[in-house]
Nucleic acid binder design. Sequence first.
DNA 1: CCTTGACCTTCCAACAGTGGGAAGGTCCAC
DNA 2: GTGGACCTTCCCACTGTTGGAAGGTCAAGG
Lengths: 135, 135
Amino acid sequence: MHIGQVATMSGVSAKTIRHYESIGLIEAADRSAGNYRSYRPDDVHRLRFIRRARNLGFPIDRIRDLLRLWSDRDRSSADVKAIALAHAAELDHKIADLRAMAATLHRLADACEGNDRPHCPIIESLAGDDGAPGP
Amino acid sequence: MHIGQVATMSGVSAKTIRHYESIGLIEAADRSAGNYRSYRPDDVHRLRFIRRARNLGFPIDRIRDLLRLWSDRDRSSADVKAIALAHAAELDHKIADLRAMAATLHRLADACEGNDRPHCPIIESLAGDDGAPGP
DNA sequence: CCTTGACCTTCCAACAGTGGGAAGGTCCAC
DNA sequence: GTGGACCTTCCCACTGTTGGAAGGTCAAGG
């Protein structure tokens, strides 16, 4: 299979597959006579794994670890779980940050009349004119 | 004032202040005899505004808009509110995405025994071995 | 045989927003 | 005048992907 077909089947773009190869996330593919990358069905499987992990927000380096564990018959599920939980904790942390931002924004927006006059609590808060607490 | 003092007072690092100047977010500072950037108290004010906006997750280009509105005496608060609400909507969207990821991760982690044996629903889900739905 | 078009190749650059560090100049106090 | 704190510019790194340019390959059809 050529890269385009693998891209279609795996849901990972050809561009990104080449990128993954360049950073060593996947092995360098064999080449055909015309120097085209040549893939086996197994590679599609691997790329789908990567895509699913990316969809869960795992960073590339974590995916590296997950791939190793995937192909390790002697793995401990505890190792996998630890990675998943650590990532979940990071996500929860990001969510908390974003929620705090969103809550502040909604609060400020509620306080803003949104008319054609310049008075605006949002701008004032950013300017530090009122009781808006800096970090 | 030199950049270091402005950095301390504004909470924006000297490195970042130079970056902001280079991308035109703030005006190029006057230079002293020794080619040092020279700032006025007003610049601290402006940088604090930027820092607060960054803390709310506004991207640089939105902050550009907000700065323009800040210094526009004839602004409409509706314009400010629109920017704030658009950004809040983006944050809400990101939050929803992250929450979906985190929920899936927590679900998978709950299903994983986390012991020293290889069987692991997390890996299996990524591999597509089970009923895990691809996007 | 030659062209067309779809596909592939490599390499370079960009996005956002900093941080790190090198190599060098300036200022101030002692 | 010397040390040390500060400043300067410049380039690279991060994260992950995308876009584009310039060119090679392959199959089909005239």
